[in-house]
Amino acid sequence: MTLETEVQSLRQVPMFRDIDPARLKLLAFTSERVQFGAGQRFFSQGDPSDAAYVLLDGRASVLLNTPTGEIQVAELSGNALVGEMGILSDTPRSATIMAAEPTTALRIDKRVFLELLAQFPQMSLAVMRELAQRLERTNAQLVAQSSS
């Protein structure tokens, strides 16, 4: 696995789809590749948001704290982006991410990510587009829910 394969993975992430290859390379180069053992946490709910992760290999569970303990609400696998909302909105982690099996991820540091956004408008636009699309989907879901 080299930088090139990481760039390929990043390209699969909707948020980064339209970004220039050279910029994606920069994003990959300034990120760290980290391995998590099964059961190791990427981060825990309530932690400060310091990085986003792209899953390169393996699976991870999304856990929420409830009065009855942690429950799994979703599972992530190949090329999923996680933790980006936290670093963009500067809020603590809203969920816990735990590796379900030995997992490799690309860790995108918050400061570096924001620097890149500030430097390259094209990247900011891509992120905005993705966020807007998510919002639209959420709106659509809300409409669907309220009409049903």
């Binding site: 050279a22 390379k25 920069l26 300034t30 570096v112």
Partner: peptide, 20 residues
């Protein structure tokens, strides 16, 4: 080659240069 490719367009003195 890689460095000139990926760091092109960053203004000189940008902190990412020094760091990476």
């Amino acid at each position: 080659e890689t460095m000139t490719e990926i760091f092109q367009g960053l203004p000189p003195g940008h902190s990412l240069f020094a760091q990476f």
